[in-house]
Design a protein around this nucleic acid. Structure first.
Lengths: 110, 110
DNA sequence: AAAATATTTGGCAATATAGGCAAATAGCCA
DNA sequence: TGGCTATTTGCCTATATTGCCAAATATTTT
């Protein structure tokens, strides 16, 4: 793997890594329907506001969300909505995994 | 976030996490064109074979790849090819991020 | 059986991530 | 100004991930 290829995949991994956390996936999902400010998301998730703020900064640094300060609140929204499409495939992975586990349990796996 | 929702996003995050590493993304990319055995991937990546073997077991545990032992070699291939579609969106994220950085540098950001 | 090849697993040190609390910062309003 | 709300940041501890080496396991070959 040459230098250029390595950097390419490191950059891609950075984006994937930003999405690889349950709270951050939840946030992305929430922002799909409408923008939200930090304390709304914190309430929905049930975590400390500072924790959620940090999750948002991870998503922002990765270029997935953008923020806009209005008054004393900061509203976040999706900058690249295509990330929502990941979910269908992820569900497909989970579904076929579940099927495989089931097949193994039932001894019907090839 | 209720119990069921939490588990849903934890499962999704598990799959995303398996993809959130440069070597593992590279592997997925390689397997897109054809199956590979461990030492081939290790050579392409330039890492220790044991390291690559562990990456493969992470992908396998997530349900993304499957393995098939033939002789003394273990061939891996993609079990859920739709993960390849992630890359287009990830590139879109990287591209718009790059544009934003450029705009900021040039002072043309809104 | 011994040697050679392919892969996995255990152990370990280095590094990264997560999450909460407390403190700092910023805007709003009386 | 002072108090109140919203958000971010620093700090710290706990936990997870990574990658290599060495050892174990499996298969093929001589």
């Amino acid at each position: 793997m040459d230098q250029r290829t390595r950097i390419l995949f490191e950059n891609r991994a950075r984006v994937m890594k930003a999405l690889a956390h349950p709270s951050r996936l939840f946030i992305v999902n929430e922002l799909a329907s409408k923008e939200r400010c930090v304390h709304e998301l914190a309430r929905l998730i049930g975590a400390d506001i500072s924790t959620v703020s940090k999750h948002l900064s991870v998503l922002k640094a990765a270029g997935i969300v953008q923020d806009e300060k209005r008054g004393s609140q900061v509203y976040y929204n999706l900058r690249v909505p295509c990330v929502l499409k990941f979910m269908d495939c992820v569900e497909a992975v989970l579904k076929t995994s579940a099927e495989k586990v089931l097949a193994l349990q039932q001894g019907t796996a090839k």
